[in-house]
């Protein structure tokens, strides 16, 4: 029964959610909405499990004086601090001004002053690494690689207004080429990949719903 009950539940849930795509029967739609609500609850609980696991692993390493233990301590302090501040603010124990700006003002301040610049800085570094990688890795070693390089160069040139003498003339040549590449060549390739992937997902979904694929049961 340890195997049969989960397989039956999976089959039932899968069939209801799939059937709800094709039928507007009220009972089916209600069942689908209920199942989706359960799924959202599971996702939220997963966050709690994740936080618990993060504490368990990092506290253990702090206690063992792992070489990186100060960073792990900072992680836990930051996580706890933001969580406590958030709960206090949402529950109304901390209110900014007359409260008309809502109950996330302090959380948003931390987001804007700390998280936003840090993440934006990390992402901005890509400009430097892409330039370095382009110099080292993009080689016309074969016919296919040359085609790829040519297409990339056309798209990059057409994507921006060129600030050089004759820039508009170059733009007027590469822009129709870019349109052809993106709207026809790219679209045809994308559609083929999408259809292939969709059929693969459908096959995998059917295998799970029918109980053939059981890897989610650790089998």
């Amino acid at each position: 029964m340890k195997r049969e009950i989960p397989i039956a539940m999976t089959m039932l849930a899968g069939l209801i959610v799939t059937a709800a795509f094709f039928s507007k029967a009220p009972w089916l739609q209600a069942a689908n909405a209920e199942l989706l609500s359960w799924a959202l609850i599971f996702f939220s609980v997963a966050f709690l499990l994740g936080i618990g696991n993060l504490f368990r692993i990092n506290l253990k390493q702090i206690a063992m004086r792992h070489p990186d233990w100060p960073y792990k301590a900072i992680l836990l302090i930051t996580l706890s601090g933001y969580l406590i501040l958030g709960l206090l603010e949402i529950e109304g124990f901390i209110v900014y001004g007359d409260g008309s700006l809502g109950n996330k003002v302090y959380q948003d301040w931390i987001h804007g002053a700390v998280f936003k610049p840090l993440q934006a800085t990390m992402f901005s570094l890509l400009a430097f690494y892409i330039a370095s990688a382009a110099f080292r890795a993009f080689r016309a070693r074969s016919f296919e690689a040359t085609l790829l390089l040519g297409a990339g160069a056309v798209v990059m040139l057409a994507q921006v207004p060129l600030p050089i003498p004759g820039g508009s003339a170059i733009g007027s040549i590469v822009q129709p080429m870019q349109h052809f590449l993106m709207a026809f060549v790219n679209t045809a390739g994308q559609k083929a990949i999408i259809m292939g992937a969709a059929l693969g997902v459908l096959a995998t979904g059917l295998r799970i719903v029918l109980g053939i694929e059981r890897s989610y049961l650790s089998e």
Binding site: I130, A131, F135, V160, P161
Partner: peptide
């Protein structure tokens, strides 16, 4: 962005 694109294209050209 245009300047960055042109520099990257120049680097690809020089690299090749």
């Amino acid at each position: 962005q245009a300047g960055a694109h042109m520099l990257i294209l120049l680097l690809i050209l020089v690299g090749n």
